[in-house]
Design a protein around this nucleic acid. Structure first.
Lengths: 209, 209, 209, 209
DNA sequence: CATGAATGAGGTTTCATTCAT
DNA sequence: AATGAATGAAACCTCATTCAT
C-alpha cells in the first residue's frame, strides 16, 4: 500500500550482506563505501540513508554478528553429560566458522578495529559482552555437571571456561593462515583428550545417593 | 672524510620501538608515518632512510616479533615430564604477553593486516612459519613423552598441538577486551585440568613395574 | 531518481583548457594538480573524476593537440600547384601557432616529457604518428606535383619533407625565445626562396610544349 | 704544491659530464642530485661545493653547451661560395648532433626548462643570444655572397636565416622520436634542393665586370 | 675539502561525506 | 527515497638543501 515498494528492512539486510563481503575481503580501512555500494547494488549516497557513517555500518555488522553468535547458545545442556555438552557447544560454533568463509577474516577485522584506540570502547564493550555470555554459559554447564557428579570438584571453572572458549579464537587465527585447516575437525579430535581430565573419575565420584 | 657518526642499528631500533607503540595504539592503517616519526624523535623523511615504505616498516616489526617469539623455544624439554614441559612453554609465552602491553594490540593488528588480500602472502607466509614451528615443537615434545611413557599413546598429536597453541591466541583476544585478565594466570590454573587427560594413567602405564 | 544534471563533456573540456594553461606556463613537472583545479574552478578531487592521474591528464591534452593538428590536413592539394600547396599547408600550421599563444610552450613541454625515459614510449609513439602523417602528406603532395610536371624529378622527397616539416618546429623554438617573431610571417617570406629550387624550371620541363 | 691533489676545474668537469648524462636521461625535474652525485662518483654534498643549486648546475651545463655551439661558428665563409658555406655550417652542427647522443634529449630539456615561467628569463636570454649569433652569422654570409654576386638580390635574409637555422632544431625533434634518423644525412640530401633557389641564376647575375 | 644523515615543504592521490537534483 | 558529482582533509613519499663530523 505504500507508494514505493521498498522494504527498508530488506535493503538494510542487502547492504549489510554486501558490507560483510567487502570488509572481509579488504579490511575495514581499505574497504571503501564505493565498493560496498557497488556490491549492494545501490548508490553511495544510499548507504547514508541507512547508516550514518562507515563506522556505524561496520558496527552494525558487528552487532548482527554478535547477536547471531549469542543465539547459538542455549543448547541441550540438561539432557547430556556436562562435559559432552560443552564440547558440543564448541563444535557447533566451530562448524559455523568452517561453513561460512567470511567469518574468519571478518572476525580478525573486528579484533583489529576494536584494538584501535578510537573505537575500543564501543567495540570492546560489545565484544566483552559476548565473551562473558559464552564464558558464563560454559561455567554454568560445568557447574551443573559438578552438581550431577559428572565433573570433578575443585576445578577452576572461570579460567577453564576462558581457555576453552579461547581455543575457538585461537583456531580461527590458524585457519586464516592455513585455509585447509578445519576448526571443527581439529577440535573434534583434540577435545576428548583435553577434556578427559575434567570428568570425575571412579575414585572421586560423589558418595552418591 | 669522517662522516657524521651515527649508529644506524641503534637508530633503526629506536624507530622500530616507536612504530611498535604507534601501530599498537592506532592500528596499521590509522597510524601515520608522521606520528611514528614524532614518536621516534626524528623527521618524517628519516624514516624512509631506514625503511623504504610504511608497509616495509610494519613488516620489519612483524619479523622482529616473529624472531623473538621463535627464539623463545628450546626449553628444558628433556629434563622434565613432557606434559609439564609443554605447559611450561605455553606459560613462558603467556608471561611475555602479560609483561609487554603492546603485544596484544600488535598481535591483533598483525592478524588483521595479514588477512587483507594485498598483504596476505607476505605476512601470512611468515606467520604460518611461526605457527608451524611452535606446533612442531609441541608435537615433538609430546612424541618424546610418549617414548618415555609419560604421555598416553593414541593421542591425535597434531590437532592437540594446534589447539594448545591456539589457547594462547584465544586468550590474547580476551585479554584485549578485558585488560585485567592475565593470560599466564589463567593458563596456570586451567592447564593442569586440561592436560591431565594426556598423561598416561596407572591403567595404561608401560609394562614397567 | 534524477541525478544532478552535469555535462561531463563540457566539464572535461573546461579541465583540459585549464590544464593547457597551467602546463604551458609551468611545465609538466612543476604544474600541480592544485593549480590546475584552481584554474578550472573545481576542487582537486574533481580532476580525478575525469582523469585517473596527472599523467593521463597531460596525455589527454597531448592527444587532443595531436588530433587537432592532424585534422588540419586535407588541404586543396589538387587545385593548386603542388609546391604552393605544400607552402600553404605549412603556413596554415604556422598561423595556428601564432594565433594560440599556449601552443609554443606546450609543444616544448610535449617534447620534453616525451624525451624522458618513463614516458617515452607512450608519448613518443603518438608524436611519431603525427610526424609520419605530416611527412607522408607532404611527400604525397610533391609526388603528385612531379606527376603533373610541376615539381622537379630526382628530388629526395623524404628528406625534403622532413626538413620542410622541421622548419615549423624550428621556428616554434625561436618563437618561444623571441615572442615578437611570427612563425607565419617568417615562413611567408622565406618559403618562396627555399622552395623555388623545387619547381621544375624551363630547362627540365616535361617534353610538353 | 697544494696539500690536496684535487683539481677543482677537473672535478667540476666531471660533475658537469655526469649531470649531462642524468639530465638527458631523466629530464630536469626528474633528475635528482643523488643520481648526479652517484654518476659523478662524489657525495651529494660535494655537488654544492661546486654549484650552489640544482638550477645553477643545469644552467652551467646549458652555458657550456651554448659556448660549445657558438665556438662552432667562424667557418671558412670567405673562401667558398656563400650558399655552400651556409650549408657547410648547418651540416657541421648536424654532424655534432648525430655524434653526441645526449645532445638531442638535452636540447629538448633546455627548451622545456626555459619555457617555464620561473626560469624563462635566465635561460631564454642566453638561448636567444645563441640564436642571434647564428642568425647573424648566416645573414652575414649570405650578404657577403650577395656582394660577390653568388646570392640572389632581393632575398629576405633575416627570415631565411631564421628558417635555415630552424631546420636544425626541427630535425632534432624528429630525431628523438625516430632514433634512426640522421640529422646530417637528411640535411645533406635536402639542402641542395632547398638552397638552389637562393643562388643567383644566369639571368640575374650582376652586370659585373 | 668531502661526506651523507637529516630535514620538512610540497606533490600526487584517495575517499568519507555532503547535497542539489 | 535515491543518486552520484563534488569536495577537501589527510596520507604517503620524494628530494633539494643543510651541516656536524
Amino acid at each position: 500500500m505504500s507508494p514505493k515498494r521498498i522494504d527498508r528492512t530488506e535493503r538494510r539486510r542487502v547492504i549489510l550482506r554486501a558490507a560483510t563481503e567487502v570488509f572481509a575481503a579488504r579490511g575495514y580501512r581499505a574497504a571503501t563505501m564505493e565498493e560496498i555500494a557497488a556490491a549492494a547494488g545501490v548508490a553511495k549516497g544510499t548507504l547514508y540513508l541507512y547508516f550514518p557513517s562507515k563506522e556505524a555500518l561496520f558496527f552494525a555488522l558487528f552487532e548482527r554478528f554478535a547477536d547471531d553468535a549469542m543465539a547459538e547458545g542455549g543448547a541441550d545442556s540438561e539432557t547430556t553429560n556436562a562435559v559432552d555438552a560443552v564440547a558440543a557447544l564448541l563444535l557447533q560454533i566451530a562448524a559455523r566458522i568452517d561453513a561460512d568463509t567470511v567469518l574468519v577474516p571478518l572476525t580478525l577485522e573486528f579484533w583489529s578495529v576494536a584494538g584501535v584506540a578510537e573505537t575500543r570502547d564501543r567495540f570492546g564493550a560489545r565484544y566483552g559482552q559476548m565473551l562473558d555470555m559464552f564464558r558464563g554459559q560454559i561455567t554454568a554447564m560445568l557447574r551443573a555437571g559438578q552438581r550431577r557428579g559428572e565433573v570433578k570438584e575443585k576445578l577452576p571453572l572461570q579460567p577453564l571456561a576462558s581457555t576453552l572458549l579461547g581455543v575457538i579464537d585461537g583456531l580461527i587465527v590458524q585457519r586464516w593462515v592455513d585455509t585447509e585447516l578445519s576448526v571443527a575437525d581439529t577440535l573434534r579430535e583434540a577435545l576428548p583428550a583435553l577434556m578427559a581430565g575434567m570428568r570425575s573419575g571412579p575414585g572421586d565420584a560423589r558418595p552418591a545417593a
